[in-house]
């Protein structure tokens, strides 16, 4: 057992335990905070794999912003007793289990049938430069289309939130 493996297993354990906490904890605010820990754990695994840019963006976007929005929404909209607020209890848990198992089966199948060809050992020194050249070069149209799509979503959300009469 050498160092890199220990680091990986620690990260994986943190991520999985936090993910179990998201599902199992009765208080939904605790679940949301566990979700943050899951995001951070996944970011750690990205760092471990050498994908430092994706890891940092994972922290910035998911752990720093999206999870905060989730917690905000919970705090503003929650009207029930908070200690029993996680809806993952009780109803529909058998259906959820079946779908989760089906999904896991599909993922395992696709992992098993992918031929993992290793290229030349990639050069980690300037991953962000390569990402920049790809995003702004070969895939610039997809990148811009995604930006326009997000802008449309933002405008739509604002129009929906404002309501009709205030226009």
């Amino acid at each position: 057992m050498n160092w890199p493996y220990i680091i990986f297993y620690v990260l994986a354990a943190v991520t999985i335990i936090a993910a179990l906490g998201v599902v199992a904890l009765p208080n939904i605010v605790h679940s949301a905070l566990c979700l943050v820990l899951t995001f951070v754990g996944v970011a750690g695994i990205y760092f471990y794999l050498g994908a430092d840019f994706i890891g940092l963006v994972q922290i910035l976007a998911y752990a720093g912003a999206i999870s905060v929005l989730i917690i905000f929404a919970i705090m503003l909209l929650l009207s029930r007793e908070v200690s029993e607020s996680n809806p993952s209890h009780g109803r529909g848990k058998w259906k959820a289990a079946i779908f989760a198992e089906l999904f896991a089966f599909l993922i395992i199948l696709s992992i098993y049938f992918t031929s993992w060809t290793h290229g030349i050992a990639p050069d980690w020194t300037d991953s962000i430069g390569k990402i920049a050249y790809m995003l702004m070069g070969d895939y610039v149209i997809a990148f811009e289309v995604a930006a326009v799509l997000l802008l449309g979503a933002v405008i739509g959300a604002i129009i929906l939130a404002r309501g009709e009469d205030k226009r």
């Binding site: 905070l33 910035l60 752990a63 720093g64 905060v68």
Partner: peptide
């Protein structure tokens, strides 16, 4: 710096 700083909100 920016992304770790953003965690302070949590």
């Amino acid at each position: 710096f920016i992304s770790v700083g953003s965690l302070g909100t949590i």
